[in-house]
Design a protein around this nucleic acid. Structure first.
Lengths: 128, 128
DNA sequence: CACAAAAATGGAAATGATTATCATTTTCAT
DNA sequence: ATGAAAATGATAATCATTTCCATTTTTGTG
C-alpha cells in the first residue's frame, strides 16, 4: 500500500505553524505580516501559493470576511458547516445532519452522483 | 405619523427592477452590463452607489461569491438553491425547505438574528 | 561528490472589483 | 425662475489576489 504522503514544503509547514499558534482566522496579508515580523523573509506570493495548496488539500478552510477578503484557518477533519456573524466575524461550527440528508435526497432525485455540497448560515450574533 | 417614505431615486428603482426581473443573485458588474445592454447609459459608479444604499435600507441582501465578488438580491425574495453538474455545468433550481428550517433552527440555538444562508449542491449529472 | 532536472521562491507587473474625487447636471422647493 | 441640495458618471486611486519570470534550492542518480 502507498504511504499517501502529502507533499508539503517548508512554506506550507510555516503557514500551518502560524495558523496553529494564532488559532483563529487570518487573511493572507495578515499571515504574511506575522511571518515577516518574526524575521521570516517569506514572500507574499509564496504565502498565497501555500495557502492555496493547503486549501486544495483540505488542510485549511477558506471563508470570507464581510468585505470579501479571504480568511483562512486550520480545519478539523470532520465535515462541518459554519454559522458566521456578519458583524464581528465570530464563527460557530455546526453539524449539518439535515443538510447532508437534503443534499443526498435532492441529488438522487435528479440523478446526480459524486455529490458534495456547501452551506453557510450568516446573521448577527447575540453579542453584536 | 410620518409617512416613513424611503428616499429612493431613479437609479435605485432601476436596480430593483432589474433584480426583480432576473430574480436571483447578480454582481454589480453584471447588473451594470444588463442595464447597459438595455440602452441605459447608467454609470458603474451609480450602480455601486445605488446597491450600497439599497443594502443599507435592507432592501437588498449582499452575499459573496466563492471568489469574493459581491452579489446582490432582493430581500425576502423567496430564494431557491442550485444543483450544479461539475462536469457540464448544467444547473437545476431546487427548493430548500429543509435547509430553511435547519438554518433558522441553528441560528436560533446560538442566538443569531437577521439570518440568511447559502447552500449549493454539486455533483455529476446523469447525462455526464 | 557532481550535475542536470524539477520544484520552490519572491519581486515586479497585471488584473479586477470596489471606492474616492470632483466637476457637471438634474431635481425641487420657493 | 433660481439657488441649494442631491444625483450622476468619468477618471483616478486602492487593495487583495494572480500572473510572469528569472533566480535559487532541492532532489535523484551515476
Amino acid at each position: 500500500m502507498s504511504t499517501a504522503t502529502k507533499r508539503m514544503n517548508k512554506s506550507d509547514l510555516k503557514l500551518i505553524a502560524v495558523l496553529e499558534r494564532t488559532g483563529g482566522f487570518a487573511s493572507a496579508q495578515e499571515l504574511h505580516q506575522i511571518l515577516r515580523r518574526e524575521g521570516d523573509g517569506i514572500g507574499l506570493t509564496t504565502v498565497y501559493r501555500a495557502l492555496q495548496s493547503l486549501v486544495d488539500d483540505k488542510i485549511v478552510d477558506l471563508l470570507r470576511r464581510e468585505d470579501g477578503e479571504a480568511i483562512y484557518r486550520l480545519c478539523g477533519d470532520n465535515h462541518h458547516h459554519h454559522l458566521v456573524c456578519k458583524s464581528c466575524g465570530d464563527t460557530v461550527e455546526i453539524e449539518g445532519g439535515a443538510i447532508e440528508k437534503w443534499a443526498k435526497t435532492m441529488a438522487e432525485e435528479f440523478g446526480f452522483r459524486e455529490v458534495g455540497h456547501t452551506a453557510e448560515i450568516f446573521g448577527i450574533c447575540s453579542k453584536c
